[in-house]
Simulated assay, not measured.
Amino acid sequence: MKDTTKQDERIAKMTFASVYPHYVHKVEKKGRTKAELHQVLEWLTGYDESALQKQIEDKVSFETFFKNASLHPNTHLITGVICGYRVEEIKTPLTQQVRYLDKLVDELAKGRKMEKILRSNA
Rank of each mutant, 00 (worst) to 15 (best):
S120L: 14
R112T: 15
V19S: 10
R112H: 14
L101E: 15
L41F: 06
A12I: 13
I11C: 07
V27K: 04
Q97E: 15
Y47F: 08
L77Y: 05
Q39E: 05
K2V: 13
H72N: 15
A35K: 08
E89K: 12
T79P: 05
Q7P: 07
H22D: 14
E9V: 01
M14E: 08
N121E: 14
T64H: 00
Y85V: 13
E28F: 04
L104T: 14
D8P: 03
Q55G: 06
A109V: 08
M114Q: 07
H38N: 01
A69E: 10
F62V: 02
L71A: 05
Q7N: 13
S120N: 13
S50D: 03
K26R: 12
I11A: 06
K103M: 10
Y85I: 11
S120Y: 12
R32Y: 01
Q7G: 10
S61H: 02
W43A: 07
Y23D: 05
T75G: 11
D48F: 01
D8C: 06
E88P: 02
A122W: 15
I11R: 08
L52Y: 06
V98T: 06
A109F: 04
L77A: 11
M14S: 04
N74A: 04
N74G: 02
A35P: 04
D106L: 15
F65M: 02
S61Y: 00
T5K: 07
S18G: 15
K59M: 00
T79N: 09
L77G: 02
L118W: 11
F16M: 13
D3L: 05
A122L: 13
Y100E: 11
E49H: 04
V24P: 03
E63V: 00
L77I: 05
S120C: 12
I11N: 03
T45C: 10
E107R: 15
H72K: 12
T75A: 12
M114G: 08
T79H: 10
I56V: 13
A35N: 09
Q53S: 05
Y47S: 02
R32E: 08
E57Y: 03
K91Q: 09
T5A: 14
T64G: 00
R32N: 07
R119K: 15
V60W: 01
R99K: 10
G46F: 00
G80H: 10
H38T: 01
K91T: 09
R10L: 15
H72P: 14
R32I: 08
K116Y: 15
K6V: 03
R10H: 10
K26S: 11
A51S: 05
E107H: 14
V105K: 08
E9P: 01
Y47T: 03
T79M: 11
V60S: 01
A35V: 09
K34E: 05
L71Q: 09
Q39K: 06
T75D: 14
D3M: 04
L104D: 13
L108P: 01
I117H: 11
E115T: 12
L52Q: 07
V19P: 07
K13V: 07
V105P: 04
K110T: 12
G111S: 08
C83I: 00
L41I: 13
D102T: 10
E63T: 00
G111I: 07
S70D: 01
I90S: 14
L108T: 04
D58H: 00
Q96S: 10
